[in-house]
């Protein structure tokens, strides 16, 4: 039997919607599993790489140091790294905080807005979360390709289950993922 490709996935600053879309492959997931086996992935709950992988899928961009750390681990451990979804490619919703870039202290302003100043926030102690276990935030949100080299970017919010199926089947058989126009057009 042919050796299966190893697949790792991670969700960084995203909403897990792209991972949900993986499940949208429905029963075709079984077909995919004939060609690939999961390594590190939220679907498997492995927290680290068990061995080198052929394919890495990244959902979400980088908003904190942990995202950067995970993304770099993926780059080091995966032959082909694929950014899936708008957040990984362009920053998505989280990147909206980059719009505060003209302030003197944009990160402080962002946190103040989120936890204190927003009209519908009830935060009597004006407490901004700062537990030592929380990873430090980056000065702004970075897209995956700003931090490491990305081999393929698959647009969509999220990319559909059909699209992800094609991506995985193509990569599992050593081909370049290609799509019909309709599959990556979102109106």
């Amino acid at each position: 039997m042919k050796k299966k490709k190893r697949l790792a996935t991670a969700s960084l600053a995203g909403c897990f919607g792209c991972h949900m879309s993986l499940l949208d492959m429905d029963e075709r997931l079984l077909e995919v599993l004939e060609h690939v086996e999961f390594d590190r992935s939220p679907l498997m709950d492995f927290k680290g790489f068990r061995q080198r992988c052929d394919i890495g899928l990244i959902e979400g961009g980088c908003c904190n140091e942990d995202n950067v750390h995970v993304l770099r681990q993926f780059r080091e451990n995966c032959d082909v790294l694929v950014a899936i979804g708008q957040c990984a490619i362009m920053g998505g919703l989280p990147v909206m905080r980059n719009a505060i870039m003209h302030a003197d202290d944009p990160l402080r302003e962002c946190l103040e807005e989120a936890y204190n100043e927003s009209p519908r926030v009830l935060n009597p102690g004006n407490h901004i979360p700062n537990d030592p276990a929380l990873p430090l935030l980056l000065d702004k949100v970075y897209t995956c390709s700003e931090v490491v080299h990305i081999d393929f970017q698959i647009p969509g919010c999220p990319p559909s289950g059909d699209t992800l199926y094609q991506v995985l089947m193509a990569l599992a058989t050593g081909k370049k993922p290609e799509f019909s126009y309709g599959m990556i057009k979102y109106d």
Binding site: D105, L107, R108, L136, L138, D139, Y142
Partner: peptide
């Protein structure tokens, strides 16, 4: 990228 957060936190 981390300087500002170090300072704030």
């Amino acid at each position: 990228a981390l300087d500002e957060a170090r300072h704030l936190a």
